[in-house]
Design a protein around this nucleic acid. Structure first.
Lengths: 187, 187
DNA sequence: GTCTATAGCTAGATAGAC
DNA sequence: GTCTATCTAGCTATAGAC
């Protein structure tokens, strides 16, 4: 067994960067190879099913990050529900680099026609909603109100990322996060 | 002058359909030709600058539609501001086919790296904000409040389209439009 | 595991007949 | 104005040396 030139973790970072900025179709094997520091053929050694498998790995990697950071912060019972909201929103700030980064799930799933991604986006969105719903219930919101607010969080995060990018003004994203915090903390 | 086999209007419909579902990179000349009923070379006769020019034409075409329908409804002084909101939101329902269609500007501008589209998205978004701002002022909102609400409209429309598509549930889009209506009509 | 080299294909775009 | 045929460049993916 010859040693790996580049760590799996670092490959994923390079792949994520390219897929995020170019999308699935727009990302070429050439760029993906350059971003990881490996040659094309070596990338195929790591991902025998090619580009699709690379995108899947990025999906899984970011999904785990969200689990371990965003969701864990929102559900961490060592903190009060209000503190959890603050902490969770801070992780979201990091995830999207304060509004500078697009949502990688959107970048990868849009217009690929790959069913797998559709399913993963669907279950990912439901997870976000369930987690925010849980915090809402812990804050004493009614079942219906908590569910509604949770969906609204998702809408506003995704929408504000788009508008921030379109206007070239990341303060839109920041203000949206602050509004979400207020809505959860002031009832 | 030999007669055109396909009308400009119908070509634009075909191009729009493909770009909307596949994005700029994902749309191939082959598909674009098939969707319009012309052969590739004939498409190049109509759009000498190729794919980029086709996308620009779609941009302009949809932009005009929005001007003539959404914006005109929102600014039509024959109606009260509240009626204008209702009418404008109805045009938006049509534009996005009740949440079934993605935003063509987003589909075309994302991850293409084409500056032209970035500029057009930027000015397009500013137009949306200005028009909603104007209606807000007509309704008696303060300058700051009207501006804030106008940005929020854009965020919620874009976000709800994404969430609707991700969850496979267009009621998310419909509920968002109803919330916008309530926010404008009840103060 | 990583590399060079290349296969096989499809992309966007053009030439020229009609 | 539309077409068939074709060009070149780039793509994804593989073969095989090291």
């Amino acid at each position: 067994m010859r040693p790996q030139k580049v760590l799996d973790k670092d490959i994923l970072i390079g792949l994520t960067k390219v897929f995020r900025s170019k999308g699935y179709e727009g990302a070429s094997l050439k760029e993906l190879a350059e971003a990881t520091g490996l040659k094309k053929a070596s990338l195929y050694h790591r991902f025998p099913n090619g580009k699709k498998e690379m995108a899947e790995a990025v999906f899984a990697h970011v999904g785990k990050w969200v689990d371990h950071n965003v969701f864990e912060a929102l559900l961490d019972e060592r903190f009060t529900p209000k503190e959890r909201i603050k902490n969770g929103l801070n992780e979201i700030r990091t995830l999207y680099d304060h509004g500078n980064e697009v949502c990688i799930f959107r970048a990868l799933s849009m217009q690929t026609g790959l069913e797998l991604f559709e399913k993963q986006v669907n279950s990912g969105m439901n997870q976000w909603i369930n987690v925010f719903n849980e915090v809402g219930l812990a804050l004493g919101f009614s079942t219906a109100d908590s569910q509604k607010k949770a969906v609204q969080v998702l809408i506003e995060i995704q929408g504000s990322l788009i508008v921030s990018k379109g206007l070239g003004d990341i303060s839109v994203f920041e203000k949206t996060l602050q509004n979400i915090e207020i809505k959860y903390i002031n009832g």
